[in-house]
């Protein structure tokens, strides 16, 4: 009986390879992600995500709050969506005026903060996102999230 189960499972495994495989271009993007590893940068981990707590399914997007913690600095982000287009408001604590790179899979947008470490970005498409900035003399990069 268990051999039959194993055989059926393997058959199904083969069927999945044919009928619903990982798209080749997608697999390639994961291979190329090796270059994204932050060699010299400090990783700011996601320490708070308002989307991690709630269990109810919302129709459409509300405002999502996130915090990323580095050793000396925190990056707070507020994401909101209207009509399929996202807006990001961010701030660096302790405040520091610097450049912030908004990294997406296909492109990067470079912003400048105001003197209080605040920055914003409109027309965000859904998908993976990471922020990179130089603060306290060191490079900081946030954990990838899905916008």
């Amino acid at each position: 009986m268990t051999e039959d189960d194993d055989m059926l499972e393997n058959d199904l495994r083969r069927a999945a390879d044919l009928m619903d495989p990982v798209p080749a271009a997608l697999l390639q993007s994961a291979v190329e992600a090796f270059a994204l590893r932050s060699l010299a940068a400090e990783l700011a981990a996601l320490s708070f995500d308002s989307l991690a707590e709630t269990t109810t399914v919302r129709s459409g997007y509300g405002t999502r709050l996130l915090s990323f913690d580095g050793a000396t600095h925190t990056v707070d982000v507020e994401l909101s969506f209207t009509d399929g287009s996202g807006r990001l408001l961010g701030s660096i604590h302790p405040p520091e005026e610097t450049e912030v790179s908004v990294e997406r899979p296909e492109h990067t947008v470079v912003l400048r903060t105001d003197p209080f470490g605040r920055f914003s970005c409109r027309d965000l498409a859904p998908g993976p996102l990471s922020l990179r900035c130089r603060v306290g003399g060191a490079e900081l990069v946030t954990e990838w999230i899905t916008v």
Binding site: V22, L26, S29, A30, A33, F34, L36, R37, S38, L43, P105, G127, P128, S130, V141, E143, W144, I145, T146
Partner: peptide, 11 residues
């Protein structure tokens, strides 16, 4: 979801 997962592993 697939991309974010792999990108995060790279980090």
């Amino acid at each position: 979801a697939y991309q974010t997962t792999w990108f995060r592993l790279a980090q």
